[in-house]
Design a protein around this nucleic acid. Structure first.
Length: 152
DNA sequence: GCCAACGTTGGC
DNA sequence: GCCAACGTTGGC
């Protein structure tokens, strides 16, 4: 089982929304590196849920991957901001995964704390200028992260 | 294939 | 709102 980190703006879709819905398609990713990571995901992998662009940025919860190889429907929807006219219907350019809620942490582990406790080699998300919305997390970093996230 | 211009992300 | 970082686009 592998670990990942998924970034989202909580005003658009945050850990509370996922908890309510239980499961959701992770749509709207339009970056090839991020897509390639999603293509490498396996059912049962776990992903840290990171809140970006908000009051307290940091890790808010945990989810797992419940489906892989899902074509992102927004790429074919002309009304969607994520519409991609160049994506062939028979070979969708943007596929994604479904995620399931696992847990919400007692508090958000802030970016400042992450920078305190982890180096950019441990965790891509603390790297300055990092804009990737889907990132791998090594097993060893994931174990340490889980423990840190569950502290009160 | 290079690179400048431009748009977007995201922390602060 | 500012700005650094970075991806994409398009002219050449």
């Amino acid at each position: 089982m592998a670990y990942w980190m998924l970034k989202s703006e909580p005003d658009v879709f945050g850990i509370d929304a996922l908890q309510k819905q239980r499961e959701s398609i992770w749509d709207g990713v339009r970056n090839y590196q991020a897509r390639n990571y999603m293509r490498a995901m396996q059912i049962g992998d776990q992903a840290f849920f990171y809140h970006s662009n908000c009051e307290v940025t940091g890790i808010a919860g945990l989810c797992d991957i419940s489906a892989t190889g899902v074509a992102d429907p927004t790429q074919f929807d002309p009304k969607s901001p994520y519409f991609d006219a160049k994506s062939p219907k028979d070979a969708p350019r943007w596929d994604t995964v479904k995620v399931r809620f696992v847990e919400k942490f007692p508090r958000v582990l802030s970016l400042a704390e992450l920078k305190d406790r982890f180096t950019s080699d441990d965790l891509v998300v603390v790297r300055k200028g990092n804009r990737l919305s889907v990132m791998p997390v090594s097993d060893s970093a994931a174990i340490r992260l889980l423990a840190a996230c569950r502290e009160k």
